[in-house]
């Protein structure tokens, strides 16, 4: 009977074992990395829209408040997209013959809404509510990134569950107070929008650490070594009545 294993079997086994040892983790890490990369999450990938609306122009250059267009952000789970009427409040007078705004004018004449392409979405089994986040002083940019710098709107964060849980497990890392004169006496909700006004009036240099990070779009909350910020955040958690005990329960978002 012929030998079952030829001498080359040794090498084949070694190479085989080695490639399994390297290949499996590589594949695993690769899939994990890919699912977290912009290729999958679309973070910082500008999305084409029927009208090239620039948040940078309207909020930073013109200083229009978020709520001028997103009227229901303080009282509803949905922030709300502006009706064509809202665009026309100014654009019936400004840029009236711009070809870029043709879809707006058409929509206003025909009553057919503009079909914007959704930038931020969560699965249907997740219930997200804007109003409670705003009411507890979570700034728009905390989740949406530096909207004030976006020419074409893109997603600021992945909105994957692990990302949500960073804050839901430790809200004290993300809450902060505006201690400057203009933040005096403001409710957490008012403080959220006050940042943009301060940026307009006094420039980025006059913002505090957290606010600077927010308007730059790299706000990651207080880090473990920033104990003073975490302590301040803990005070706010109790002051604002954030129910930490149940914040990371499944049923908070999945119901």
């Amino acid at each position: 009977m012929a030998q079952i294993f030829k001498p080359s079997a040794n090498s084949i086994t070694q190479v085989g074992l080695l490639s399994v040892a390297i290949g499996v983790p590589t594949l695993w890490l690769g899939i994990a990395g890919l699912s977290r990369s912009p290729a999958n999450t679309k973070v910082q990938v500008p999305k084409n829209q029927p009208v090239p609306f620039s948040h940078q122009h309207h909020t930073w250059e013109l200083g229009i408040d978020c709520r001028y267009c997103h009227t229901s952000v303080e009282k509803s789970s949905y922030a709300g997209l502006p009706a064509t009427e809202t665009c026309m409040s100014c654009h019936s007078q400004i840029w009236t013959n711009s070809p870029l705004l043709e879809p707006i004018r058409q929509s206003y004449e025909t009553g057919m809404p503009i079909q914007w392409n959704l930038v931020n979405k969560v699965p249907d089994f997740v219930h997200f509510n804007h109003s409670i986040h705003v009411d507890r002083g979570i700034n728009c940019n905390t989740c949406h990134g530096a909207v004030n710098q976006m020419h074409i709107t893109y997603k600021g964060n992945s909105f994957q569950m692990a990302w949500c849980l960073q804050c839901h497990r430790a809200p004290e890392r993300y809450l902060y107070k505006d201690d400057s004169a203009s933040g005096k006496g403001l409710t957490p909700r008012q403080q959220v929008f006050n940042v943009y006004w301060k940026l307009q009036e006094f420039g980025p240099a006059n913002l505090n650490d957290q606010e600077k990070d927010l308007v730059r779009g790299d706000y990651n909350g207080a880090q473990p070594w920033e104990q003073d910020k975490i302590a301040a955040g803990k005070k706010l958690v109790s002051e604002y009545g954030v129910k930490v005990q149940q914040l990371a329960d499944c049923s908070v978002c999945h119901y």
Binding site: I64, I94, W95
Partner: peptide, 8 residues
């Protein structure tokens, strides 16, 4: 701002 920026 809108008034100063272009409302004709």
């Amino acid at each position: 701002m809108i008034a100063t920026r272009g409302y004709q």
